[in-house]
Structure formats: C-alpha cells, structure tokens
C-alpha cells in the first residue's frame, strides 16, 4: 500500500454539513483513529472512503494519483467492517467464513484462527451471540490480505480477550505496512496513532 491522502473533503447529509476542508495523509504502517460524538460523521467518512458515498468536494489520492473509491481496483485493496456483520443466519459459521474468504479472493485453507471462532464452526449464524457475530465478521480481515482496513466501531460487543486479539491483529497488520482507519469510542486502542476529531 502506498501513501493514502485526502484533501479538502466535504460531505453533507440530510442538508447538514458533516465536515469540510478535511485532510489527512497516511503512510504505510499508520493508524488513524476517528473520534467525535455520535452523529459527527465518523461512519460517513469511513463509508466515503469505501466508495459508498460520494464526497461533495475534495479528492482521495493513492501514491499521489487521484482515485475513485468506488472503483473495483481501489475496493479490492480494502476491508470494510461496518455496523452490519454480513452474516447469514441460515449458514453455519464455516460456510459464512468460506464465502467471505472466497469473495475477498483469499485461499480456502485456514491455518490461523485469529478470533477464536473454530469452536463455533458448525453452529448456524442465527444462534451466535452479538460478540460471536462480531468475531466472525472480523475474521474476514485476515481471510485475504488487503492493505487498507476501514473499521467502524470494531470492538462493539467484544469481550476483553477478543479486543486483545483485535488489537494484536491491527498491530501485526500495521507492522506489515498496512494502513488502519478506525472509528472507536475508546474500547479499541491503537498504538502511536494519529487522531482525527470530527464534529468540533
């Protein structure tokens, strides 16, 4: 992953300006933490970077060249963990994970189990608890290597041990040159990170 920059980003929703003149520059290995009160635009910024929402102004550059976040070239370099976990209740954990992995272009052999879901493999998705569902969703971060991680409240519903696992995964990813942008209310800690405070 090459340096990711954004400049002059502006976005409004429902006739209200969420942010404008927003800019950041991230090098490989950087972690950016988005903070701010509810409704300040953290999720919207992440969805913008994943190409779901178009900014009203500004541009995003990868290695100095402007990119369209909704293009499949850009999207195939990122993992996005949103509020919804994208788990099918009628499929077992193994089937859900296999689908996510193959969709992301990862191999099917699962050597590691970073979020300790192997015990749940044969259980159907609808019988998982909120925290277990979150762990299954987070497992797709490591199912296929993609350099940019966009995490929206990744720690919701997780127990202490799982949060530790998530923090270790983020640390390893950044050590390998990946970029992490996360919105969090403090349950997940990043090391030596940059902070972008929204909604001031």
């Amino acid at each position: 992953m090459l340096p990711l920059e954004a400049s002059d980003l502006a976005l409004g929703r429902n006739g209200r300006i969420l942010f404008d003149n927003l800019a950041f520059e991230l090098a490989p290995g950087d972690g950016l933490l988005l903070t701010g009160p509810n409704g300040s635009g953290k999720s919207s910024l992440l969805r913008l970077l994943a190409g779901f929402i178009r900014p009203h102004a500004g541009e995003i550059r990868l290695d100095g060249r402007p990119v369209d976040p909704s293009s499949s070239d850009f999207r195939s370099q990122l993992h996005f963990i949103g509020h919804a976990n994208a788990i099918k209740g009628r499929l077992t954990v193994r089937e859900n994970l296999e689908f996510m992995t193959r969709l992301a272009g990862g191999g099917t052999g699962h050597a590691t189990d970073p979020f300790a879901i192997a015990d749940l493999f044969e259980r159907q998705g609808r019988f998982l608890s909120a925290g277990q569902r979150r762990r299954l969703a987070l497992s797709r971060l490591l199912s296929a290597p993609r350099p940019l991680w966009l995490l929206d409240e990744p720690g919701v519903g997780l127990d202490r041990a799982s949060i530790d696992r998530l923090q270790r995964a983020i640390r390893d990813h950044r050590a390998a040159g990946g970029i992490v942008i996360a919105a969090s209310h403090g349950d997940v800690a990043l090391e030596q990170h940059l902070v972008l405070e929204l909604g001031r």
């Binding site: 779901f52 999207r75 996005f80 949103g82 509020h83 994208a86 996510m100 969709l103 992301a104 272009g105």
Partner: peptide, 15 residues
C-alpha cells in the same frame, strides 16, 4: 441489504 451482505458484495471487487 439489511444484514450488510450487499456491502460485502460491493467491496469484493466483483462488479
């Protein structure tokens, strides 16, 4: 759409 699978599909790189 409700369970987020549509976002997953959109981000898969599959048109």
């Amino acid at each position: 759409l409700d369970d987020g699978s549509l976002e997953l599909l959109a981000l898969s790189g599959l048109p």
